[in-house]
Design a protein around this nucleic acid. Structure first.
Length: 475
RNA sequence: GCCGGGGUGGCCGAGCAGCUAGGCGGCAGGCUGCAGACCUGCUCUACAGGGGUGCAAUUCCCCUCCCCGGCUCCA
């Protein structure tokens, strides 16, 4: 059967059938981080969510060209009007590019540890400065931008349809955290190129003097440089809808003269911690490395995928504990299957095959990972019940393969191997269980239970069934 | 103020016009020396409140209340 994938497009706020420009090929650009500090759980949420989407598309047979940028210049901070990179550099008393490198490498490592598929191209804003200057120049030539001393601004009113993505009206862009530059023609106009103050540590020569790019333009340039003037998917956190993505559309379509710049805009919901936004001042700022010290990558991923990518998600110990139970259920089912012997019919395999169909249709419905996980749980439960009732599995490796196939399509349990004891340990365990059986036969339950609880402490759960002991390893 | 997203059973969390989400937890029973796993049943005719349109509304429309986000910092 063929599957129709439906996605919710932020542009238009509606569900649309997913049809790529070139059949079978997905050109996708995801906004990467500004590397002035360690990545946090919010980044993990966004990139894991997109990772699952990408893996699923690949699972469905698409080739995905995935570009995710690194922004290492031009991201202005509000209170000081200072580039975020410069701020990081001042804090750490290093050169801005040294700071950028440090956090970029850290980010790459975090993503690898989380099992996020590497993008095919990871361009860096500072490496496309010539292209940015060129783009800014063209925007001036085309009449979409104007200069004010050494700065260049995009004139929003020149671009028809500005505000289509975020549904913002130019006339309502009246509230500002920062006093807008009074020389701008309209408060909504945004910088393409900024004139640098004296002694600014990170500047480039341009036709307008020494300066640096505005935030937004780098993404337009990198997206078009590596994926072309029109792409299939552009994604990022929900907080980027305005102004970042709105401005990207304006710049890009003004430059290329082609519309739409992006077919499907996908945005991930915010991550909160115990119900509050993450802020260093609240003390609830959790970096990815901190999270990885406490939780396995699969656990973090399962937690994130338990919520739909567009919904907000709240991080808490309780939520993680719940995710852990669910993960253990899946792993338990896979472990049980690895020990089950062939025999019986295809009944279980056929039933799990239905779950795989459920899984696919859930994911085809705007990448509904909670529903997709429900299908995996259903399959795992069937396995546990089947084996729990002592029924033959039929083709355990086939069943395990189907469950792993679903998990892997979400990036879960990619490195799964059934937990096994070493041969020697196996023999020792057998001796212990033999002794325990004899103890129980003589009614010496207390000592038998002692053996059981001591084994449980080291991750070996012994369960007594009619057919003897079943050992579950949670090593 | 403007724009956007939400409020689903004890908790988490899908669905969004008719048909069981799912998970976690709790209770009772079965099986067990016990525990666990597994099985059965219950908690579970839940969808913020009030109107409206439908044969039919958690799902669409309007109003009210509450929460959150964006409005040139953010994934």
């Amino acid at each position: 059967m063929t599957y129709k994938i439906t996605v919710f497009n932020t542009l238009g706020r509606e569900y649309q059938e997913f049809k790529t420009i070139t059949p079978g090929l997905v050109k996708m650009y995801i906004c990467g981080p500004t590397v002035y500090d360690s990545a946090h759980l919010g980044h993990a949420r966004t990139y894991i969510a997109f990772d699952a989407i990408i893996r699923f598309l690949e699972y469905m047979g698409y080739r995905v060209i995935y570009v995710r940028n690194i922004t290492d210049v031009g991201h202005i901070r509000e209170e000081s009007g200072m580039d975020r990179m410069i701020h990081g550099a001042e804090r750490e008393r290093r050169h801005p590019m040294e700071v950028a490198d440090k956090y970029m490498m850290e980010f790459f490592k975090d993503m690898d540890m989380l099992g996020v598929r590497r993008p095919d191209i990871q361009p860096r804003a500072s490496m496309v400065i010539p292209e940015i200057i060129d783009a800014v120049h063209k925007l001036i030539e085309k009449g979409f931008a104007y200069t004010v001393d050494g700065s260049v601004y995009f004139e929003v009113s020149k671009f028809d349809g500005y505000g289509r993505l975020s549904r913002i009206k130019i006339s309502e862009l009246q509230r500002h955290r920062l006093e807008p530059d009074p020389r701008k023609k309209s408060p909504g106009d945004f910088a393409l190129w900024k004139e640098a103050p004296p002694n600014y540590p990170l500047v480039w020569r341009s036709p307008w003097g020494l300066g640096f790019p505005g935030w937004h333009i780098e993404c337009s340039v990198m997206s078009m440089k590596y994926l072309g003037e029109q792409i299939d998917v552009h994604g990022g956190g929900h907080d980027l809808v305005f102004p970042h993505h709105e401005n990207e559309i304006a710049q890009s379509e003004a430059l290329s003269g082609k519309s739409p710049f992006v077919r499907y805009w996908l945005h991930t919901g915010e991550l909160t911690v115990e119900g509050q936004g993450m802020h260093k001042s609240l003390g609830n700022y959790i970096t990815i490395r901190e999270a990885l010290r406490r939780y396995s990558p699969d656990l973090i991923r399962l937690f994130i995928l338990s919520s739909h990518y567009r919904s907000p998600i709240d991080f808490s110990e309780k939520a993680m504990a719940q995710a852990r139970e669910n993960l253990e259920k899946i792993v338990d089912a896979l472990n049980l299957l690895s020990e089950a012997s062939d025999g019986g019919g295809d009944e279980l395999a056929n039933s799990v095959a239905l779950d795989v169909e459920e899984f696919k249709s859930a994911m085809c419905n705007d990448f509904n990972t909670p529903s997709a996980l429900a299908a995996i749980y259903a399959a795992a439960d069937k396995v546990r019940a089947h084996i729990g009732m002592g029924r033959p599995v039929g083709t355990p490796s086939k069943v395990a393969g189907m469950i792993l196939e679903m998990c892997n399509a979400l990036g879960l349990l990619r490195g799964f191997t059934p937990v096994r004891l070493a041969v020697e340990a196996e023999k020792v365990l057998k001796v212990l269980l033999d002794v325990r059986r004899e103890l129980r036969r003589r009614g010496l339950y207390e000592i038998g239970d002692e053996i059981r609880s001591r084994l449980a402490e080291i991750g070996i759960k012994v369960e007594d069934t009619r057919d003897g002991e079943r050992v579950r390893l949670t090593l």
